[in-house]
Design a protein around this nucleic acid. Structure first.
Lengths: 343, 343
DNA sequence: AAATAAATTTAAAGCGCTTTGGATCGCTCA
DNA sequence: TGAGCGATCCAAAGCGCTTTAAATTTATTT
């Protein structure tokens, strides 16, 4: 059943039927009801492809996940997307997913711009000096960055957490607990979020006049095995750290494994603070969370970023839109005073 | 630049230009080259929305993730999708992602069928007596199930692993190592895969005349905390199990946590076998994998299932297509003979 | 009751492609 | 020399909607 058939059946023009269904004001309320009833009865659904051509809108948002050789599908992407898709479906949009390695990236965006498959995109994992931001500006595609590029001073829309402050506060807590040798197990610092986190860490050390030590700063993909090898290496040192500050839950699992391997007990012999994105299958809550953590739901972040993007698409003058979220520090079982013997 | 403008610039008809670009035979090779060059030069990209309306194909595959109240975004979905999207992009398709709770599910599929936004769908996590399979058959939408519904005897396309055999073999190994009390930490048994895994487990126990014990069979969502609480409960028993058979890496992390909590050492005091989907951020390989595991890449599964679906869409007479994959049992550090003191 | 304004409906023109059904043109062959 | 035939190319219809511009009907005003 298409519009033509439906309007024929109703003895009305396609115009009126279309308007009735789309709630245009210039149609008699009585007629509108009649049309809506008939549409329901005959299970009429406007053909999406036709609507999209006629309106010139794709009703689709693109998520292009950057895939380098090492990393494939980060669980954080998954959770962010799950949040975003919720916002989209509420407003009749779809989510189109693409993977891109750095080589293909530019051409993918140019293609998107030219063929009009999406009305906007989310930029994931902005790198330092990320070319995607100027590119999207040039192509004039609405976009929201999940994170920021601090080297880009232009106006663009983003949603980010205050990475620097979160890691500042976490480091501060560890220092307050007496820790002087704190190992940072960070993400790749070509990514802005990781770079900012290190700044926060260094800020806190600086405030307390603790010298930083490059041997205590690890960087790598957000995998369990990276956490394991970084922590193993750190603990093998003659003068091992008494605390770890870890980029994510997944990485912390590897750190914890290394700690156990070394015969140590987390929270007693050694302290750990993580950043917790609140992945749904890794709940770090309850009476006493396993991990002391700076905590912020990346799922909520996805939903909000998506909403921002749709708001921009609906009303371009809304841009740029920005949102900075704070990640509160929540005390769990993984931290304690240095060298203490408390259970 | 659209087709009309390009053809005007070339002094050719839209027909010829379209045919030249789409490699139709009835166009002179010389003309074709001229057209392709001009298209390149003017950066012409056919408007996707128009192409889709004209051809009647959406060039999009739908993935509708079932979301119940407890579970949100399973990491296995993410990895499967990452595999699938690779197959799609190779063949010019897009992936459209939707979430659906069980209530909205039917209407979502009916909507998809009527408005033609997708050319086919992947069915994730088939339940026992899953209504989606007959529904999609009725709606005549091409689909491939990731898994099977053993209660559905009709012909449909699926890609599955041999869950029963994998868990049979894993259980068998544990029994051979002397374990008699093996705790199964399973997924929800309303899902076929979990149900089949229990059958495999029971088969092996039965073969060895070991009585099964419902107290040793846990079931729940694939989360870390479920693994933790199931294992904690099992270990608190007066006569605790000497081995665990665990549905996934994520769940096993919780099991491992509980084991450590109980002051035990995995692989020495207690054995663990997992099913390993080879999530990219949880590598369970190396010289000696952490976990003994039945192993199968869900990412590869996604790529294959997607390819199967596209093959069906291209040539409907190909259906039904099926693929059964075996998950080899790979020995890691988490298993050992029962009650032994070997390091 | 005529004139004017407001409410409602419609015909037809797109949106930018693909594809059907002819044209056109040079060549071959009887 | 002219019918017949590939090889090329093109005009126009169509995909199923939205939207513009105009027509028609109904209500309001004087």
């Amino acid at each position: 059943m298409n519009l033509k058939q439906l309007s024929l059946k109703l003895g009305l023009s396609q115009t009126t039927v279309s308007r009735a269904l789309n709630n245009y004001p210039e149609v008699n309320e009585h007629t509108r009801e009649r049309v809506k009833l008939a549409a329901l009865k005959h299970n009429y659904r406007p053909n999406t492809r036709a609507t999209r051509l006629a309106t010139g809108r794709a009703m689709t948002i693109g998520h292009i996940l950057p895939m380098n050789s090492t990393e494939t599908f980060n669980p954080i992407f998954g959770e962010f997307i799950a949040g975003a898709v919720q916002a989209y479906s509420k407003r009749g949009y779809e989510l189109s997913l693409t993977l891109a390695n750095e080589d293909s990236e530019e051409s993918i965006y140019r293609e998107l711009a030219a063929n009009g498959t999406v009305d906007g995109v989310i930029v994931h994992s902005p790198r330092v000096n990320d070319m995607r931001i100027p590119l999207l500006q040039e192509l004039n595609i609405p976009f929201v960055v999940h994170g920021r590029d601090f080297n880009n001073l232009s106006d663009y829309s983003w949603l980010d957490m205050n990475n620097r402050r979160a890691f500042y506060q976490a480091t501060k807590l560890l220092i307050d607990l007496g820790h002087q040798s704190i190992c940072l197990v960070n993400g790749r610092e070509t990514l802005n979020f990781a770079w900012r986190r290190r700044l926060g860490y260094l800020d806190a050390l600086g405030d307390e006049k603790i010298a930083s030590d490059t041997a205590l700063m690890h960087t790598g993909d957000l995998t369990e095995s990276n956490g394991y090898s970084a922590a193993t290496k750190a603990l093998a040192n003659g003068n091992p750290p008494t605390a770890f500050l870890v980029a994510s839950y997944v990485v912390a699992l590897g750190v914890r494994r290394a700690i156990h391997h070394a015969g140590l007990e987390m929270g007693r012999d050694i302290s750990v603070i993580i950043h917790d994105d609140e992945l749904s299958y890794f709940q770090n809550d309850g009476d006493i969370p396993q991990f002391t953590a700076t905590r912020l739901s990346v799922r909520d972040g996805g939903e909000l970023a998506a909403t921002m993007l749709l708001d921009i698409i609906d009303e371009p003058s809304n841009a740029p839109l920005t949102a900075l979220m704070e990640a509160p520090l929540v005390i769990g079982a993984s931290t304690g005073p240095v060298k203490s013997g408390t259970a």
